[in-house]
């Protein structure tokens, strides 16, 4: 089985965040990590490879040329090879353009099973997997908290308000996963060493046969007008001590006409 994991490079969650002059998220190389939610996708790809002998796992990322380091971090967990789609014309791509590029790359690589995280920790868009599925004309099994492959069929438990739904689709299929699906492994020393020697291909737009006018900032359908700091501080009353605290809360709820 040909398994491809789509992983995005995002700034680490603890990194100081700011916008560039043209209102794009400032992406500093030293802060870059694999999107934390994609670790579950990577782990699931590796587990499916273990369960389905003879499978290969490819890490696919669209990002800046330096994202090769981020792909190697994923390859340190496991997998066979990486593919980076990078091109100066891709800067400023919106989610739909990103999906267009990933779909073209997936078609070039070939796939039976594509695994995504459910959202990226930079903007929490959560729309790329479904858009890729549409470009490819394939089913998406989204928000999977469990995944099983049997024959040419993928079956998931889809996270629901209470419990879950069982959803199945014929392969080739796309799956997006939620964090309860697994516990991602830590890369071993051996894995880190091995990752350095794994093949990592780089595709440009031309390699994918895509026109620069259909992607990147040139094709973005949304633009930022500006940003402002928001103060969400509230200067509330602080009551210290257990004694009388409950009565103070009740009195407050009465003052506020909640009780």
């Amino acid at each position: 089985m040909n398994i491809v994991v789509c992983m995005k490079e995002t700034p680490s969650t603890t990194a100081e965040k700011s916008f560039t002059a043209d209102m794009r998220l400032e992406r500093r190389k030293e802060d870059a990590i694999p999107n934390p939610f994609d670790e579950y996708a990577i782990e699931e790809g590796l587990r499916q490879q273990e369960k389905n002998p003879g499978s290969t796992v490819t890490m696919l990322c669209m990002g800046p040329a330096t994202a090769t380091d981020t792909i190697r971090k994923a390859l340190a967990m496991g997998g066979d090879r990486g593919v980076l789609v990078t091109d100066p014309a891709l800067a400023g791509s919106d989610a739909i353009s990103t999906a267009r590029v990933l779909a073209a790359a997936l078609t070039k690589i070939g796939y039976d099973l594509v695994i995504f995280g459910n959202a990226a920790a930079d903007a929490y868009g959560g729309v790329v997997p479904s858009a890729v599925a549409e470009f490819l004309g394939k089913p998406l099994l989204s928000y999977a908290s469990q995944l099983g492959i049997a024959g040419d069929k993928a079956t998931i438990q889809r996270q629901a308000e209470i419990g879950y739904n069982v959803v199945e689709a014929p392969l080739p299929a796309l799956v997006s996963v939620v964090k309860s699906i697994n516990e991602p492994r830590y890369p071993s020393m051996k894995g880190i060493m091995a990752s350095k020697k794994k093949p990592l291909d780089t595709f440009s737009l031309a390699d994918l046969g895509l026109d620069a006018a259909t992607v990147g900032g040139a094709a973005a359908r949304e633009k930022a007008l500006g940003a402002e700091k928001v103060s969400t501080q509230r200067k509330g009353e602080i009551y210290v001590g257990n004694d009388g605290a409950a009565d103070r809360v009740v009195a407050f709820l009465v003052e506020q006409k909640v009780l």
């Binding site: 009353e237 602080i238 001590g241 605290a245 409950a246 809360v249 407050f252």
Partner: peptide, 24 residues
């Protein structure tokens, strides 16, 4: 959380919450 609340109780929830339930 005390930086963005309208009423903050500095106390032990194991004491305050059951008392609050009774008071309500």
């Amino acid at each position: 959380i005390f930086g963005f609340c309208d009423l903050g109780i500095v106390g032990d929830l194991n004491v305050v919450v059951p008392q609050l339930t009774e008071a309500v």
